[in-house]
Design a protein around this nucleic acid. Structure first.
Lengths: 112, 112
DNA sequence: TTTATGCGAAACCATTCGGTTGCAAATATA
DNA sequence: TATATTTGCAACCGAATGGTTTCGCATAAA
């Protein structure tokens, strides 16, 4: 079961939940009111977001308030950073580098 | 069949492909050499990335070079922007705003 | 104490996903 | 021309995904 932040934000409902909670902490019922889906469905999304440490729970009586761990969002920003460098420095010389490709063979495994 | 950029980068192999191609345009076979998966599997990833306009094809004889549409990556950056504002201005007053939650009811459908 | 509310967890279901295998088309090479 | 290479596509498969329904457990309210 993959459970990283990129998989977490792949779902549009989860992205909306993140945006909602960024503004103010909310309970599952309050969150579910904003969507055309059931509370249980939202609950599953909250579980996924919590498991990858994007959300944090705060119990208040029988209610649970979910708050956004904003720092976790930086992980996405850090991955984007490498590409931001490219488009900001107008590094559009991809065609030039294109000729080298044939020599690149049997290099070590590439992992993210 | 969802096919947006967030779903595209959810898969670790696809993120690695994006990073690879950002450096230099590559053919499917050359790309597949970098992974422990089959050429056909990579081909499917390339199809998905192309369908959501992250990659562009350039036919050269019987080879097809895939190049990164770097501008498309900005769409992710734009979504992150709202959160970057929060963590950069050290807006960690989420607890304060927490009290308002009970009034928020029956507001219009929330969509991303 | 009894009832209502808020919530998570488990079971189940249809769909999607990532991968493999096999094939056909196009181009390059012998 | 005959053969080899590069590639996309369709069919298939097991696993994961997102959703619903049902249930049980706390806590709050009557």
């Amino acid at each position: 079961m993959r459970r990283d932040i990129f998989q977490a934000i792949a779902d549009p409902t989860r992205r909306a939940i993140i945006t909602l909670i960024a503004i103010q902490a909310m309970t599952p019922n309050a969150i579910a009111d904003n969507f055309n889906t059931s509370r249980q469905s939202v609950s599953k999304h909250l579980r996924i977001l919590t498991e990858c440490e994007l959300l944090k729970q705060e119990q208040k009586g029988r209610e649970i308030y979910y708050t956004l761990e904003i720092g976790k969002m930086k992980e996405i920003d850090q991955w984007i950073e490498q590409f931001r460098k490219i488009w900001e420095t107008r590094f559009d010389q991809l065609d030039i580098v294109l000729a080298n490709i044939k020599n690149k063979k049997d290099e070590q495994q590439f992992t993210i």
